[in-house]
Design a protein around this nucleic acid. Sequence first.
DNA 1: CCGCTCATGTAACTGGTTACATGATTTA
DNA 2: TAAATCATGTAACCAGTTACATGAGCGG
Lengths: 177, 177
Amino acid sequence: MEPTELECCVLGIVWERGPVTAHAIRTELLASRSSFWSGSAGAIYPLVARLEKRGLLRTEARPWGDRVKRELTLTPAGLAALRAWLAPLPGWAGAVTFDPIRTRLFFLGALPAESWSAFLDDAEAKVRAEKAALQAELAKLSGRFERLAAGGALRELEARLGWLGEVRRELAGPEFC
Amino acid sequence: MEPTELECCVLGIVWERGPVTAHAIRTELLASRSSFWSGSAGAIYPLVARLEKRGLLRTEARPWGDRVKRELTLTPAGLAALRAWLAPLPGWAGAVTFDPIRTRLFFLGALPAESWSAFLDDAEAKVRAEKAALQAELAKLSGRFERLAAGGALRELEARLGWLGEVRRELAGPEFC
DNA sequence: CCGCTCATGTAACTGGTTACATGATTTA
DNA sequence: TAAATCATGTAACCAGTTACATGAGCGG
């Protein structure tokens, strides 16, 4: 079966970070700025077990007290799966992404016109906050692709801010509609 | 319990389109450019039943042959739920969205450097195709908020194209990393 | 009368969430 | 030594997917 985005993302993290524990993967996902990746234990541990059963990951158990610490590495099949996921891109890769603000704007007419401005203030404040946090993080990144990816996220947030400004001008303007 | 994004989106569609059948909601979601909204029957029909049980939707059964056609309308509680969903925005509303291309770029180093350019070509072609389709659709839209939302989606796609160009320049440039 | 669109559903499955449970190691 | 962090898992649940099943109405 087609692996999920999260599964392949985990393969990618293992590829990049060398031998890692499932816990380290979790913390990396939890640190991600995107709300898409939760990294809950209930997602990661079964997922890792799944990938291991499919032969994409290999775990090496290290004694740690009277428990074991399981360090994950990619198998050749795992690397192949990662590469197959990277390219070619799925058909929907270019599709418009899910933006909760844009989705809500569709139905903004259900709120009284007096509150539209407050809605836009709220949206702008939240995007700006995210942008500031991302910029602070970007300054600390060193990896080539990490920086490029963060740059993309930054451009996305800037596009949203520009758009919110346009929406504000349009809604403040002529009411003929 | 907190309603899901899909549930509230359905409330919004019912608010906007007046009395509609569940089927019409499906087709509207299926037509959406975002791959996020699938509108499968197995999602919509149980969802509508759920919203009805919670008193957010009311259905009026119309005889149609020897079956019934169920037309949905918002209840006052449904309108209140829709408004509560619209504002205030959830804390994560400003977060960076999920972009499959950006996610993959993180791990592009797992592919040989010779194939990076093909990856970017592929990504650019897919985003451009989406942009063209969206522009064609935008020309046909008439609703104020519909147009504004589509404009936001367009800006997002343009930001991604700009970013892909930047990535290309960066990767073509100095290899010192 | 054939095929398309409108229309309503169900059943099995699955990936991910929330919440819980446990214990080792490190650091203040 | 107490608190924070590292570490591994499980159980119940749930929303959404895929695939299936059925049938009305309509245009060619």
